[in-house]
Each structure stands twice: as structure tokens, then as C-alpha cells.
Design a protein around this nucleic acid. Sequence first.
DNA 1: CGTAGATTAATT
DNA 2: ATTAATCTACGT
Length: 674
Amino acid sequence: VAERRIVAQVAVALPLDRSLDFEVPGKLADAIAVGCRVSVAVQGRSVFGIVIALASQTTHPGPLEPVLSVDDGPRFSPEALRFALHVAQEDLSPTGLFVNRLLPRRTRTAPGPSKVITPAVAVVDAFGALETLARRAPRQAELLRLILGLPEPCTEPQLRRRLGRSIRDPLRRLIEKGLVRETAANPETATPPPRAGGEPKEAEAVLLFAQTRWDRYVEAVRGALLAGRTALVLAPEILAAEELHARIDAAVPGGATLYHSGLPEAERGWVWEATRAGAVRVIVGTRSALFLPIPGEVCAIVDEEQDRSYKQDEMLPHYNARNVALERYPDILMGSAAPSIETFHVARNGGIRLEQPDEQREEPPVRIIDLAAEPGPLSETLVAAIERTLAADRRALLGVNRRGRFRATICKRCGNPLSCPRCGLNLTYDVRSAQLVCPTCGYAERQLVCPHCGSRALRFVGSGGDRLTGEIEARFPGVRVARIDASRLRTVSGAREVAALVRTAPVLVATSILAKGPPLPGLGLVAAIDTDTLLARPDFRAAERTYQFLRGLIGRLGPDGQAIIQTHHPDHAAIRAAADADYKRFYAMEIAEREALSYPPFSHLARLSARREDIERVLGVLKSMPIDVLGPTAQQGTSRMLLKAPSKEALREAVRAAQAAVRRLEIDFDPERL
DNA sequence: CGTAGATTAATT
DNA sequence: ATTAATCTACGT
């Protein structure tokens, strides 16, 4: 009797839009499962992939390559895999690279989900030991006290996070002394914490429209735990996630687990497997945490619901974590002090319950400076305000909107600006491609060298933040000016350094990255330096972004703070509404305009870019579809256009048709960047 | 009719 | 992603 054949459908880590079939050899039949990472041979090379299904036959005509090995590291649960595939398919994106990127790689050094730390002695018996340790080994004493106080077994990374430093050595000594036990608890056999019981909680979508939200989140997390659910808390960026995690971790029994792309891979892998085993009850993280394999019911919380960072638009697939979370989890609490027009519109029409607590918060005074009367970027009023703030031993936060590229490149040695050999205009530095580019004709230069003197010391000028930092340092000698930008936030160490600076530096210069979150300690002044660059963006959400940026900035003020808004349009409705903290008025105007011009939420958009030579073909295909095409606008070899349709389905049909007609096409549904 | 270099199609 | 096959510009 021949053994039943097993065929694995594998999403390989290649940019393919479908899975490939592989033969499962008999000796791997027991180990393989849907969601596993496997190694397979594609064109003679070994490639990783995720098993998306197991079948007994294949439609592939030729012979199948065998599965080479099955990884026993982190894996998807079937549900989590289905969800990730769904998100990629919604975007018409290939799935293989995505699911392989989501799943942390197995790491050899893993302390593993398998090692759990528990006290080896009863609390009463440990007092003596604690006393002796306190004198000669304070770190061991501190660690032992922490372990004794925990309600549940806990792991080394968790303890390390609690104490904020490595605990490798003290932990080893405690184990040697027999005070603490490290047991190898297999997550498969570990008893998951009780999930049933408590009051059953009705699932509903809620929009929390409030300045102060963290206490409400803590309450929601506690409620979720009581109802036997896992709480998943999302923040828009690593820095915000770290701060929110610290708050929630301290406030809920059992603490919270942090998950974001800045964590070391080993730790992500550990969290992933602990989550899948049901051992993690509260997760705080960024959008990648959305794909953790959480078993059972989930209560989702999305802070700063309106934040653009929830939209992934650099990498494929494009998705908005807020929208996807809303779609996946019926029990969801979204929070914002200045909600997106789209979400508020849904709340207005009863699709989401609006929760707007009475907040006894005195609005800080806001001064609008007309830059026509007082030139910037440092108006005299602002300089005086900074002076007073520093004199009162308080701090200032200056919000800038450095958008796009630098304006010019200057050689530090000879002082000559670098110009385009084709059209003579200034070359700018493009951060993404790490090249000098000409914004007019598209000329690109890979060598970062001055053509006059050959110096490699170039200075990229014109970025709002850098220029401003220089001017403040010149104006206030000796004052420490901290420049905070997104590039430093991609790693944990970077984010923690930044977090420390944000709490202490006398003057902060930052983009929208700091224009969110609760009040900062000691902050007496916030100022929007160049509000107009935000307002002038060619984006139907420009006014909304301006309002949200200004309110986010003002929201960071402590009591008795003041705000300054510099602008050439002192009477602009969005600016006035932000200064008056009148969201309702702003919303009423904005929603009327969206409806009149048929922009979201009254339509659906997609941004499409194609090569210049393909554009006619694309337009030809789109002509017959029931959609509006705005554009195209040409820029640097590619042409972009905006597609507008009354329904998402019409839009997807049109994009599918265009995709079939032209090979290289870039698509972004529901674009946040226009 | 040859090359180097760009473009494209295919992957089990 | 990587590779092999196919096209393109420019040389003889």
C-alpha cells in the first residue's frame, strides 16, 4: 500500500504572486504543518517559505521538488496566516515576501519561550536570603524581590525590561544559590492562563475622542482581561509604543509585552511564540504587532487613530493598520484628540460609538503670528517667548514640517553649491536613493563629491529643522537644542535615547513625530514654525493634517503653557479652529468640502504610477472604466495619477485591468501620501 | 554579424 | 531574488 502523497503549497520568499507546490518526504510528514517555515529548492537554490496549505495532489504538470527541511522556530497559526494573506491580497500585492518578512527568524541563542523563571523558595523563607543579599549583592536582591512579587512565572526578557538592564549575571547567581528556578516549560504543554470566566464583554467599536486617553486604555485592557480576551494595543510609532507600553505594563496585573520592528529578532521570535502559546495577555506595539498569532478573542486598542504612520506605504503590501484592525476586531477602541475626518464621519453616522468624556482641561493660550508682519522662521515674538520660557526654567518644543528633500547641496570646503550639469539648477539630496538628484530634470549623481575641489564634505541645506536648529543655537548660545527626527527611532536604542532627550532637553526641534502624546514634563512653550508647508501640500487632507499637527503640538503642553503658531495665513479656517480647539467647527467645514469635491469618505482613491512610456496604455484601459482619473503628472521617468471611484470594488476592478495591461505598475489604495 | 548592456519572463 | 533568454544600440 503506497503512502498517501502530501503536497505543500508554499509562499516562498520571492516576489511571486502565487504559491509553489513541493513534495513532502515521508520523514517530514509529521513535522510539517500549515504556517510552518520550510526550506525548499527553487531553481537550484534553497529558499525559505511558509506553508499555506497541505494537499494530496498538485496542478503543476512537471515533477515537484521536495521540501528540504521544516523549521521548528516561530510559525503562523492558521488564522494569523489567513489574515496576513488576506491583507496582501486586498492590496493586490504578492504574498510570499510579506509573510516571510512578518515571521521572525529562528535564532539559536534564544532564551526561548521554553525557559520560565520561578522562585524556588516560598516568600517567607526568602526573607533571610533577601537581607543577606541586600548588603553584598543589591542587584540579586532587587531581582529576587521582583521575581517573588510576580503573580505568574516570567521570562528573562520580561525581567530585563522591568529592571531596564541586563540581569544575566545576577540571575545566574540566584539559580546557583537555589533561590530561583529556571524551568524548561514547553509552550505547547504550558498551561495557558485561564481564558474563560469573568463578565462576558459585548464587542463594539468605539471612538474615544479625548485629549487624555491612557487611563481609559488601562481600563479597557483590564476589562479585556476580565472577559478572558487578549488586549492588543497599537501605537503609530516605536517611540509612542514604548511610552504607552511603559504606562500599561505598570498598570495591569501580569504586565504587558512589547512588540515592534525595532526589537532584536530573537526577542520578536520569543514574543511571537509566547503569543501563539496563549501565554501573552497584553501586547503593546506598532502595526507589525497586528499580525501576531493571538489565539482566542482580542480586544484591540488603536491610539492616535488618525496618524499617517499606520499606513504602510513604503513596503508592500500597502495597508492601513487602523482600517485593518477595525475590519478584523469587532471589539475595538480607537482614540484621538483630533480624529480623522473619515473615522469621525463613521461615528457621526452611527457606525462607531462616539465616546467623548467631559474633560476639565483649561485650554492653553494660543497666539497666531502673521509671518507677513514678523518674518520667520524665528519671529521676534517667538524668540521672546523662548527666552521667557528658558528663564522660567521650562522647556520649549518647536514643531517643523520638513517635507520632501533638501533645497540645495553646498561643499563645506569651497562653499560652492553643486549644480546639475544638464540644467544648471541646484542638486538636492534624496534620502531614499542616497543620491544627488536634480528636481527639475531627474539627473541623478551617485558620487557625493564636490566637482570643484573634490571634497567629500557636503552640506545639505534647506531642511527646515536643521536650519532652525542652527539659528536657535546662534540666538541662544549654550542652550542644548535637541533635534528629533524619525531616522533615529527605527532601533530600540535610538528610540530610548530619543525618549531621554525628549524628557530633558531645554529646546526640542521635531517634526510631527513629537506632535502627539500626553503632556511632556516641564514644557512651557510649543510653537509651529512653518505651518504653511503643511497647509500648502497638494493633498486633500492638507487642512486636516494641519489641524491635527497643531492640536497634537498643543496637547503636549503642561499646565500654564502657551502655544505659538507662525503662518502667512492667520485667518485660515483650519488654523483658527485648531487655535480655538474647535474640532466640531473644523469637521463641519471639512466634511462639506469633501462631499462637494467627492473626496473620501465620499469616494475611494488609489494612487497609480507607471513608467512614462506605458502611460498611454494605462489611460486607454482606464478610459472605459467607471472611475475618475486625476492627472497624470509626470515626474522623473514615472507618471502618477489619482484614481477616484464611488466604490472600492469599482476601483479594484480598474486597477486590476491596468495591472493586466502594463507590467510595472505601482499601486497605493487609500493613499495617505499623494 | 558581432558585441555589451538593457529588458523581460519564469521560478514547483 | 536570480537567472537565462531576448531585444537594442552601435560597432565592424
